[in-house]
Amino acid sequence: MSDSLRESQESPDEGDIHEMHDPIAREFERPEDGYQPIPLTLIFLFFALVGWGGWYLGAYSGDWRVDVFYPGDRATAAAEAQKESSGGTSPEELATLGKRVYAQCAACHQQNGKGVAGNFPPLDGTEWVTGPPQTLIRILLHGLEGPIQVAGNEYNAQMPAWGGQLSDRQIAAVLTYIRSAWSNQAGPVKPAQVESLRKESADRSASWTASELKSLESGQ
């Protein structure tokens, strides 16, 4: 018990026994420490945990490099480089890749390919998609503007050009995907087809219009 505190505190109100006893009745001068030992099992468990931590830290430190991002990152770099040079072009592989690329289209055309009535045309069940692949490739390379009839409804909006964003393989992939997704059952598109049309229209910068595309189609 402190001496200095006792000296410094104001003298208690002698007359009010109730008030003086109140703080005593209310509480003990706790808390105090007990001194039970730490169970050995617990100490053992904690050492095991620290051991695991050390192992994990060593195994997944990525050599403390700034360019290693996930477990196994560096070890697979060489394998990745090889895979990159030989991306598959079979219809199945293209459709798988195309499904990923399609995420970029789903903002307007929606995941189910039905579009948004009045704003964004559907891709499901329309001849624009299941018809000649050249038309589709052209739309993707350079975009489309002006009025267009899709599945019996008229739309009038700007479809952006994707030729600058997507590679030949990615365009072929996403087209292969939408031509076979939902109720569509048209054949695959090959990267080579995209490549040749890209060359053919290399100096074009304007978007296509629906009527231009129709006349190109009938001329083919």
């Binding site: 990745e80 991306g87 890749l97």
Partner: peptide, 9 residues
């Protein structure tokens, strides 16, 4: 380096 979806392992 970043990873590209075709190279995921």
């Amino acid at each position: 380096r970043g990873t590209d979806p075709e190279q995921v392992d």
